[in-house]
Design a protein around this nucleic acid. Structure first.
Lengths: 145, 145
DNA sequence: TTTAATTAAGACAAAATGGTCTGATTTAAG
DNA sequence: CTTAAATCAGACCATTTTGTCTTAATTAAA
């Protein structure tokens, strides 16, 4: 699998927030956990990371929950993934070397550079807004069947 | 990191075999382990998997070791990766769902299909032959600095 | 002010991955 | 036949990732 469980849970949770009607304020983590079948406490920890990074806002107490920190047009898939997997997830060396660049390329550097650029472009352009639209209009799923 | 340690070790070991002079027969795993700084017993297990899958041939006893099972022109990076990470590593669902296709797409399916195709094409075209050539002529490295 | 509903925090457990060690088996060569 | 060099096999340990549990802190509303 390309992404860690933490990352998949984070992505699905954020997409879930993205498809909520705009009038909704805070969404309880319990609801997301149940709707998406993600372990509650595990999800809580993951979402805390996203909150710390400024992607979502949380509110304690009754009527509390979480909420996207920005409009969906200003959030994209790539930054969510990077916030969980690490900044260099898509920019690092394919052979795992810490120092790998044009001056000191690993054996697969050239080819990987091109692929990385593709991935980053496509995921970086994918804003939550258009995604949420397509999820709603086309009935795309956030759940295992 | 995109790939597991097992996969990175496998890739580097196979590339190491690819750049050996053609007259060399069996290369001892101990040598690869030392040259590439990969734990010996761990590497042995990984290479046994590659042998079981038919990518390399092994020979026990004195003067034994391992050897590529096919000419470098018939081996590519993609199949090595898939043999370790699993057949569907590049073809599976980005959200980790087991059933995800055009008839029942997940929320990210469309976009991911395009990226997957890019990756598979680029890695599938990368045969060990050309790679080994470039590694030798351009001094590309298989080692952390 | 009490209560119920919520996130936050941190200890702990389970599972997966990464790695080590010992000994058995095989093989070439002296 | 013996020995040395190698892979093979499997038990074991360490680390990381994933997940559970309990309790504390916070907040809205009765």
């Amino acid at each position: 699998m390309i992404f860690s469980k933490r990352c998949l849970h984070a992505l699905r949770a954020v997409l879930y927030l993205g498809v909520q009607p705009p009038e909704r304020e805070f969404v309880p983590i319990r609801e997301i956990s149940q709707k998406l079948d993600i372990p509650f406490h595990f999800l809580t920890k993951i979402l805390k990371e996203l909150a710390d990074q400024g992607f979502i806002i949380s509110s304690r107490g009754a009527a509390g929950g979480i909420q996207l920190a920005k409009p969906t047009s200003e959030l994209n898939v790539k930054e969510i993934i990077e916030s969980i997997e690490g900044e260099d997830y898509f920019s690092g060396c394919i052979l795992g070397f810490s120092k790998c660049d044009n001056d000191n390329p690993c054996a697969l550097h050239d080819r990987w550079v091109a692929i990385k650029a593709e991935i980053q472009m496509m995921l970086g352009e994918e804003h939550l807004e258009s995604l949420a639209d397509r999820i709603k209009t086309q009935g795309l799923r956030l759940l295992e069947i």
